[in-house]
Amino acid sequence: MTLVFQITAIIFIAILLRVGFQIAYPEVPIDGALTKLFVIAAVVIVAVLTFVHLMRTKSG
C-alpha cells in the first residue's frame, strides 16, 4: 500500500463520513471540529486497514 494510495483513501473516507453525517443530520452545521474528527476517523480506518493488509501479506 503506497503512501499516495493511503492519502487518497483518507481523503475519500473523510469526504464519505462528512457527506454521510450531512445526510443523517441535515440540521446540524458542520464546523471545523467536526471536519477534524472525520479526518482523524479516516486516518484511523486507513491505519487499521493497512495493519490488517500488512499482517495478511506477511503471513501469506
Binding site: 443523517a24 446540524v28 464546523d31 471540529a33 467536526l34 474528527l37
Partner: peptide, 20 residues
C-alpha cells in the same frame, strides 16, 4: 440511537479541540 450517536460525535469533536 440517532440522538445518542449525534451527541457522541459532537462530544468527540469538541474533546478533540484541546488535544489539537
Amino acid at each position: 440511537f440517532r440522538n445518542t450517536l449525534l451527541n457522541l460525535i459532537l462530544h468527540s469533536a469538541r474533546s478533540l479541540e484541546p488535544i489539537t
